[in-house]
Simulated assay, not measured.
Amino acid sequence: MTKSWRAVQAAVPEFADRVQALFDAHKHKTIATIRADGSPRISGIETAFEGGELTFGSMPNARKGADLRRDPRFALHTATVDPVEGEEAQWPGEAKIAGRAIHSGAITNGPDGDLFRADITEVVLTHLNDAATLLVIEWWTPEHGLRKTERE
């Protein structure tokens, strides 16, 4: 059974809102895919949350699209911003979403290319606690729900 963004929102709405806000804060994100030889590939990408789905595209003949059609596993990462010295508690954090890309046909409202939607297996949110003294890692999986750990 596939897990859409809608499923994440239904299971953990407040967590999903914080993750989506980080993804929506910047246009460009990073996606990791798997090359034909099994090695990782990192590429820039844009994503959208529409109608309860997380979607992203690939231009015609792009290597990341070929990677995803061959092996659909991916990991997305939000834009990374550094904490401001002295204002670390204001750092918004970063988010990651992993899963499998489901090819959904051609992009219909934009440049030519392939459209993919995410079958989500994991969502991770990393941020600092209110005192900015601990790294807080929250993660959700369909199997185990929302979990949290803190590190010094």
Rank of each mutant, 00 (worst) to 15 (best):
R100E: 14
V84E: 11
A132K: 03
N61M: 12
H103Q: 06
G86N: 03
T141C: 02
W140G: 07
A132T: 09
I45T: 14
E122D: 08
G65V: 10
I107W: 03
D114Y: 03
A106Q: 12
L68Q: 01
H103V: 03
E50P: 00
G86M: 05
T126F: 03
E53W: 11
T141G: 02
P40I: 13
S104Y: 01
L134T: 01
H77V: 14
N61H: 11
G105A: 06
T108E: 08
R35S: 10
V123R: 10
L68H: 01
I45N: 02
R100A: 12
T133F: 00
F56E: 01
D114L: 08
W139F: 15
S104F: 01
G113L: 07
T141Q: 08
N61Q: 10
D112E: 15
H127S: 14
A98S: 15
F49Q: 07
V81G: 11
I102L: 14
S104L: 09
G86I: 06
R100N: 09
A62H: 02
V123Q: 08
E94T: 14
R70I: 09
G99L: 07
T141A: 08
N109Q: 14
I107G: 00
R117H: 09
G38W: 10
D67H: 06
T78P: 00
L54D: 01
I107Y: 01
R41F: 02
S58K: 02
D67K: 09
D71L: 13
D82V: 13
E143K: 15
H127L: 09
I107D: 00
G44M: 10
G93F: 08
L76W: 04
S39Y: 14
E122H: 11
G52V: 14
I34S: 04
L125C: 05
K64A: 01
L134F: 10
I102A: 13
D37V: 12
R73S: 11
V136F: 04
T47R: 02
T121C: 06
P40E: 12
G86A: 07
G105L: 05
E46N: 11
A95T: 03
D130G: 04
R100W: 07
L76S: 02
E87Q: 15
H77N: 09
T126S: 13
L135T: 14
H103C: 03
A131I: 05
S104M: 13
I42G: 11
G65H: 03
I107N: 03
I120S: 05
R73L: 06
A98Q: 14
F74W: 08
P142Y: 07
T47E: 05
G44Q: 02
R117P: 00
R69F: 00
Q90L: 15
T141M: 06
A66V: 07
T47Q: 03
H144A: 09
F116S: 02
F49K: 10
A101N: 01
R100M: 07
W140L: 11
L76R: 03
A62L: 02
G86W: 04
T141L: 09
R117Y: 06
I107Q: 10
A98P: 00
P83V: 12
V123D: 01
